[in-house]
């Protein structure tokens, strides 16, 4: 390991956000190395310019200047010196990059599915969530895919970013040794609500992580079915396109929608009953409500019947 300028888990600085992953320290060291070398050269260049600007300002029209065409030694120096410095940046950057691309063998594997405009995280036990919860001090490997367009998974606090590409897997790994909650942002433009495609990554203790995992796959004791459906609604990112308060987002609001008649693009109207709600989740392209884009991905195979039942109960309950 190189000597980090900032210890892992350090607070935000003027230039960089809080650092909470194992390779943040390396990244920040190199960032500040380039920063200070650039600042030094900028001051030298602008200093020379400012000095010449004052010293050689025109005092009278037609004053004699100087017949200089170059200076071989100076020109060799200012070609070779930057080349050497840039060589150092290249090598350090390449080594750090390879580190970010080479996960260790014993990683915890989590799958990430990106869609317009939500993140979905699938854990080893098959549970789904719209936020990423990981145990502290453990290397985590994300295998990412997109169901529609390009997205990019970015956690500023981890200095980690990787595009998510439809039709192939991309991989990103990290390890956080610092408990806390960090922003997940989409950094590849993906359409209307690109800027709302955010999530959180929570770094928790191993015990909390285990408990969280258990709670993902079904309804918990003491929870009503509608409450359970409400949790599934958020975990599957439904709320990024469907409001429950009547306001219009990308898709129709679900407030009071149960049992009402819905106009359908290119077809007869339907009653929003249990059957229609189920179809609209599993195979949304079948009947699109008039006035809304055909934008929703299919959830068939991604949620189980227990969760589907809970979702229907939840939608029934939004009045």
């Amino acid at each position: 390991m190189k000597t980090p300028l900032l210890a892992d888990g350090s607070a935000a600085t003027f230039w960089l956000p809080e650092a909470a992953s194992t390779f943040a320290a390396d990244h920040d060291y190199l960032y500040y190395l380039i920063f200070w070398i650039s600042t030094f050269f900028f001051i030298v260049m602008m200093g020379a310019m400012a000095y010449f600007m004052v010293k050689y300002r025109r005092r009278k029209q037609g004053e004699t200047t100087s017949d200089i065409h170059g200076n071989t030694k100076l020109e060799i120096a200012w070609s070779v010196l930057p080349t050497l410095i840039l060589g150092v940046f290249f090598v350090l950057g390449f080594r750090g990059f390879i580190d970010t691309l080479t996960p260790p063998a014993n990683t915890l594997n989590i799958n990430v599915t990106a869609q317009q405009w939500a993140w979905s995280f699938t854990y080893p036990n098959g549970g789904n969530d719209s936020i990423l919860v990981v145990p502290v001090g453990k290397p985590v490997k994300l295998t990412m895919s997109s169901v529609d367009v390009l997205h990019s998974f970015f956690v500023p606090a981890f200095r980690a970013k990787r595009d998510v590409v439809p039709g192939r897997y991309t991989v990103l790994w990290f390890q956080s040794d610092k408990l806390g909650e960090y922003d997940v942002l989409c950094t590849e433009y993906c359409g209307t609500s690109h800027s709302l495609m955010m999530s959180k990554v929570k770094v928790v203790s191993q015990e909390e992580y285990d408990a969280h995992l258990k709670g993902l796959t079904g309804c918990q004791d003491g929870q009503s079915l509608a409450e359970c459906g409400g949790v599934a609604f958020k975990r599957n990112g439904c709320n990024s396109c469907h409001s429950v308060d009547g306001s219009k987002l990308v898709g129709p609001s679900l407030k009071g929608v149960y049992g009402t008649e819905q106009p359908i693009t290119g077809g007869p109207a339907v009653i929003a009953d249990e059957q229609y709600i189920r179809e609209s989740v599993m195979n949304p392209m079948a009947k699109i409500v008039a006035g809304y884009p055909a934008a929703m991905p299919a959830y068939a195979g991604r949620i189980n019947e227990e969760q589907m039942g809970a979702l229907v109960e939840y939608i029934r309950s939004i009045k």
């Binding site: 380039i34 940046f89 500023p156």
Partner: peptide, 30 residues
Amino acid sequence: ALAFLFCFSIGGLTGLFLGTLSVDVHLTDT
């Protein structure tokens, strides 16, 4: 022209951050 020298120098030097692989990972698309 003098404004150009000032601004373009900053534009060029900040390009070094982006050309450096590991630093670009954090900065790209921001």
